[in-house]
Nucleic acid binder design. Structure first.
Lengths: 228, 228
DNA sequence: CAAATAGTGTCTTTGAGACACTATCGT
DNA sequence: ACGATAGTGTCTCAAAGACACTATTTG
């Protein structure tokens, strides 16, 4: 597959000799979680120029022998060695000057990991210490490497929208959860408070109650549910 | 920008020498219109292998000096020399074997053009004779070049969804239109009939009535509206 | 005036929103 | 018993759905 025949070269030459001068392709990951009642994202401090010392999304060049999803999965597994993680293509960014060194096109992906899962896969604490609150990241005076701030703003918006018409919110929670906890997730993602009774009517068909209660709180315990 | 410094090469070599072995990037266009009460798309018959003689989406390799949007606009303008055309990124397709010759990643775009606009920009008739009905294209026994059939199915779905929560349907119509015509567009895109009175309540705030009537029909003429 | 399409009024049903109430735990 | 959180019943209101009606044109 990597060998290019003469016919292919002729074909490609019709397109301005793209064989010899191609953009590079990367994937960048927006790994979201909810911690301490805040929507957070995994960022890393760049160790090399350009944008040295600045925060950026984890990413990698796409290899010839992997699909985009596989590349995204590879970047993700370098951070958290976990299976069953929500992964969705967000948008492809192709501005010419988005990387000052050369032409790079980036396919961005959204990943969502429950904080409990993140903690168990993070023995060294390198991930959880790299979690940044979205409101803080998106502050006006704050600046990120490349166009990553714009990506995060776009990803934040995608999540806000999808929460309304999908069951995306569940991706932030473990298998079992209480309804007050689920409501809190919705409230954080939507950015507004919800009425308890109405909320429960809305999500009623999405959940099944278990026999267990969530104990450990100082007051009346709440029932644990699963997705139905 | 096309010059790669030694430092860049070192940087890139960390990523498996991607400098010398990169995927190619193309854009593929889903140009939709409505003609004869059917959703249709512009397809071209491939003149060369692979998939010679088969139908495919119009597309092109992305040049180093153009953004993805510009590349999409270039392909579009090769078909229809028109401004003010709805253009939206759909999805990026990165399967390894999607092009049998080599590794090609394709960024797909949806374009929507009112049939009237398409006709005026199509003196030779080369576009309108290349319009294919979506239901026909998506038939099970029908086959298209590359993964283009899958792209069209995905684009069709995107349109069906966005019609419900955006004003996308207006993109299929000229500046002035009648409400029966607008309703027909909604019905075609949604794939079901709508009640006249309810439909008008729903779109009431999106439109402004003009002083003109649409004449030429055999019966009572309907009023022309614009987007508000 | 008949046929056909354009356009409107209104009853019903559904679901979101608001709020008040009851229930059950730990201390 | 009390404080605090969990959980429910129900009224209100707005929008979607269904259907019947009136209006205006051509031939």
């Amino acid at each position: 597959m990597n060998h290019i025949s003469q016919k292919d070269v002729e074909f490609l030459n019709q397109y301005d000799g793209s064989v010899y001068d191609k953009p590079s392709i990367t994937v960048d990951l927006l790994i979201f979680t909810i911690q301490d009642d805040e929507l957070k994202i995994v960022l890393i401090k760049r160790e090399k120029p350009p944008f040295k010392e600045m925060l950026s999304l984890p990413g990698a060049f796409v290899k010839m022998e992997e699909t985009l999803e596989q590349a995204a999965g590879r970047v993700l597994s370098e951070k958290v060695q976990l299976s069953d993680i929500y992964l969705e293509q967000l948008y492809t960014w192709g501005n010419i000057e988005r990387d000052p060194r050369m032409r790079v096109i980036s396919v961005s992906y959204i990943a969502i990991v429950p904080i409990e899962k993140l903690k168990t896969a993070d023995e060294t604490g390198t991930i959880c210490s790299n979690l940044y609150s979205i409101p803080w990241v998106l502050q006006e005076n704050n600046s990120l490497a490349f166009d990553h701030k714009q990506m995060i703003a776009y990803g934040r918006e995608r999540i806000r929208n999808k929460v309304e018409y999908t069951e995306l919110a569940f991706e932030f929670l473990p298998l079992q959860f209480t309804l007050p906890h689920l409501q809190k997730v919705y409230e954080i993602l939507l950015g507004r408070e919800l009425y308890k009774a109405n909320f429960r009517k809305k999500i009623h068909d999405m959940v099944t109650e278990t026999e267990e209660l969530f104990l450990g709180g100082a007051h009346r315990p709440s029932r644990l549910y699963r997705r139905s």
